[in-house]
Simulated assay, not measured.
Amino acid sequence: MAKYDVDAEKLKQLESYIDSIEQKEGALIGVLYKAQEIFGYLPKDVQLFIARKLNIPAAKVYGVATFYSYFTMEPRGKHVINVCMGTACFVKGADKVLEEIKKQLNITEGNMSPDGMFTVDSLRCVGACGLAPVVMVDGKVYGRVKVEDVKSILDEYREGGSTQ
C-alpha cells in the first residue's frame, strides 16, 4: 500500500469497506460518503486512495467531491452548526443569531473552532419556516432561536450533551 498522510486505522476501515463492495463501478458516491463518515472530511490523500482502489482517475473523485455540497475537503468540528438564512429566518433575525454564534466561538462562517468542537455554516432554507429562525446542530433542530439562546445551545454541546 502506498504511503498516505492520514490515520492508518481509518484508512484500513475505508479499505475494508471498499473491498466489501462487489460492484465497484458506480460506487464512488457511496465510498465518498463512507470516507467522510470515517474521516470527517475528504483530505487529498483519501481521495487519491479512493481513486486507486476504485481504479478511476483522481480528477473524477475530486470532481464528484467538489460538485456535491455535502462533501467537504476541510476538517469539520465535532459538532456542525447550521443557521437557516432563508427569507422567513432572516426576517426573524437569523443573521443576528449567526453573528452571535460566530462571536461566542470566535470563528468565521465555514470554519472550525480552535478547540475542534464546532463548525458553523449557513443554509439557504431548511423548510421549517414556522419555527423561524432555525438553528440545526448535528441535525437537531432548534426553533424560534433568539440571540440570548445561543450560549445555552452551545453549552449543551460543550458539556457533551445532545449527540442525537
Rank of each mutant, 00 (worst) to 15 (best):
V6H: 09
E9I: 08
E9T: 12
L11S: 02
K12Y: 08
K12W: 05
E15C: 02
E15P: 00
Y17H: 14
I18G: 06
D19H: 10
S20A: 10
I21A: 08
E25C: 02
G26F: 12
I29T: 14
G30T: 11
G30M: 04
V31D: 05
L32P: 05
Y33R: 15
Q36Y: 05
E37H: 14
F39G: 12
Y41A: 09
K44Y: 05
K44F: 09
K44V: 07
V46Y: 03
Q47E: 15
A51H: 00
R52C: 00
R52T: 03
L54D: 05
N55A: 06
I56T: 03
P57Q: 08
A58D: 08
A58K: 05
A59R: 00
G63V: 01
G63N: 07
A65E: 01
T66C: 04
F67R: 15
S69E: 14
Y70I: 04
T72I: 03
T72S: 15
T72Q: 06
E74F: 09
E74G: 01
G77N: 07
I81H: 09
N82A: 13
G86A: 07
T87D: 12
C89H: 08
V91M: 13
V91E: 12
G93N: 06
A94D: 04
D95Y: 08
K96I: 01
V97M: 05
E99W: 01
I107A: 02
G110M: 08
G110S: 04
M117V: 13
F118C: 01
T119C: 08
T119Y: 08
V120R: 01
S122G: 01
S122Q: 12
S122L: 00
L123S: 11
L123F: 03
L123P: 00
C125Q: 11
V126C: 13
C129N: 10
A132S: 15
M136Q: 13
V137C: 03
V137D: 02
V137R: 04
D138S: 13
G139C: 09
G143F: 04
